[in-house]
Nucleic acid binder design. Structure first.
Ligand SMILES: [Mn+2]
Ligand SMILES: [Mn+2]
Ligand SMILES: [Zn+2]
Ligand SMILES: [Zn+2]
Lengths: 152, 152
DNA sequence: TTATTAGTGGAAACCATTATCAATTACTGT
DNA sequence: ACAGTAATTGATAATGGTTTCCACTAATAA
């Protein structure tokens, strides 16, 4: 029962990385977060959680970089001056979605609407671009910007 | 002949902004640029151009903000730590395109492939999202990330 | 255990962007 | 043209998110 392998542990081990307490804690914060925390927000969440030993902000940045590299975490710029992060896979498998950003208050909406039709077109576009421009394409980013009902 | 009104001049006048030399120079750099210069790159281009009087970096940032606000210029984050800019309209009218980013060397490709099919889907998606989440959507961002043939 | 290597975190440095503010410039009305 | 005024400029200083440094600690190997 203690042997329940989390999906990211394999990835980290395979990359020759140690499963340290700080790293696991950081992933844990992301798992239990329902939005897109910045490095500092993760740092503060961990401070609240473990009053005694604080995990350094440096470690947060380093770990996030690693997790992004491994594809465990996605990294976003929503235009508020800080990089924001999100787990690439939810507890129930992949949770492919994109973002709707309010230019007024910065509120972010995760949406999955039209994702299937989009996927079809994006796949086609990716193939086309890859061939035409000799790129190997790894991922894409789609964001809509506007004003939420409160900021309108 | 000197009365040839450039399309952005109307927008600026209408917004109550003065058509100063620095502002016109900055737009000029963007017009003659075929890529996506950062504020500093625009600053350096202007220094090369006008040996005598240098336009301050502060003015560049301020002007770019204004131009973005007016929709004359688009603003991008391609992940290299500096904001990059591009005119929203080319000499021959709108030039709607998106970007392909090389994670290796940072090279950016402007592409217009599949833009029509994309437009159709995006319009539909925008309408759907606007209604469902009560957003007024103003624009969207699409970027593909990968490795160019040289960095592969 | 000892040796070796990976990981940590406080402090200092970095660097793109923003705020300040005195001097200059563009526009308005005379 | 001229003066009045409010907008604009730009050198300098400050800000703030992120990185670098490096001595120390923890994990793995021999
Ligand atoms: Mn999300
Ligand atoms: Mn472009
Ligand atoms: Zn809002
Ligand atoms: Zn490349």
């Amino acid at each position: 029962m203690g042997s329940k392998k989390k999906w990211w542990q394999g990835k980290m081990k395979k990359a020759g990385l140690r499963l340290t307490a700080p790293r696991l804690s950081i992933i844990d914060v992301l798992i239990h977060s329902d939005d897109h925390p910045s490095a500092e927000e993760i740092y503060l969440a961990l401070r609240r959680q473990y009053k005694k030993h604080t995990i350094g902000l440096t470690t947060i940045y380093r770990t996030l970089d690693i997790l992004v590299q491994l594809g465990i975490v996605y990294k976003f710029d929503f235009g508020d001056g800080r990089t924001r992060y999100e787990l690439s896979e939810g507890p129930n498998g992949f949770h492919h979605h994109h973002h709707l950003v309010c230019n007024g208050c910065g509120h972010i909406v995760d949406y999955t609407d039209f994702i299937d039709e989009e996927k079809e077109l994006l796949d086609r576009t990716e193939k086309g671009l890859a061939k035409k421009y000799n790129f190997s394409i790894h991922h894409h980013l789609i964001q809509f910007y506007g004003l939420c009902e409160h900021c309108r």
